[in-house]
Amino acid sequence: MTDPIRVLVCDDQLLIRTGLSTIIDAQPDLEVVGECADGRAAVDLARALRPHVVVMDVRMPVLDGIEATRLLAGAGVEHPVKVLVVTTFNLDEYVYEALRAGASGFVLKDAPPDRLLLGIRTVATGAALLDPDVTRRLVGRYAARIRPVRGTAHDTPLTPRELEVLRLIADGLSNSEIAAVLTISPETVKTFVSRILGKLDLRDRVQAVVFAYRHGLVT
């Protein structure tokens, strides 16, 4: 039997924290190994308990979720931890900042429990979780901030087809949706995505979206 996914829950509101933990712990493949109410405690507990996923609120005392995420999953972290941001603000600037800090995705606090559980399982596998509709709106709102001061499509090592796939990723499409648009198989799309991430030295689809906007590949 496979060991359960170890989860650390961090939220400064006791009622929400308890609710999240109850939902997660009720799953046979998930286990809450700790809870905390601020980002500093999240960093300390994550380093001590080694969870597979940290469910992280954004606005917290002592150290906010963005800085905590950067310390746990940011560039240069020796043993990065997967972070799933849970927030009440689907278009909050802090969500975008958390993704830049290294979070693997986000879900909304008012989403159905199944969405939260899917998010934890998805992030634990090393994949990114980005809701297409929310991604389009989020990136659209902050496009001015992440649009580049350098780089164009001509500066990337991608083929024209890979650039096409990257633009569709940045538009929030899933692999199956990209496959339908390009009339290719989902397996072929997976191959393209892997090549894109490898060539650009990106961790996941979250970083691919940010890269595309920073380099002016989408409008």
Rank of each mutant, 00 (worst) to 15 (best):
R115T: 08
H52R: 06
V107G: 04
R47T: 12
V86A: 15
R150P: 06
T152G: 14
A103Y: 06
M60W: 00
P51I: 10
R141I: 02
R100T: 02
M60F: 06
L72F: 02
R40I: 09
G65D: 05
T135Y: 00
I120E: 03
A127Y: 02
K82M: 05
L91V: 08
T87S: 15
V123Y: 01
L117G: 09
V107D: 03
R145C: 02
E97R: 11
D133Y: 02
L129R: 11
R115I: 12
V95Q: 02
H52V: 13
A127S: 12
P80D: 04
L116I: 03
H52K: 06
R137Q: 12
P148L: 10
M56K: 06
P112W: 05
G119Q: 08
G119D: 03
G76K: 10
V134L: 12
R150H: 15
V95I: 01
L138N: 02
L71C: 13
I66C: 08
R40S: 15
T69H: 07
R141E: 07
V62N: 10
V139D: 04
L49M: 13
D92G: 15
T69E: 04
A68Q: 03
G119V: 07
A128Y: 01
A124T: 08
G102K: 03
A124C: 10
T152C: 09
S104I: 01
T135H: 02
L117R: 01
M56Y: 07
T122P: 06
D155R: 12
E67C: 09
A75C: 08
G76H: 04
H52G: 15
D110L: 08
V85F: 11
P51S: 14
R147S: 15
E93M: 12
I146R: 06
P61S: 07
V86T: 14
R115Y: 03
G74H: 01
A127R: 09
V85E: 09
M60P: 14
N90M: 03
A98V: 03
F106Q: 13
T69Y: 02
R100W: 00
V83D: 04
R136G: 09
R115A: 14
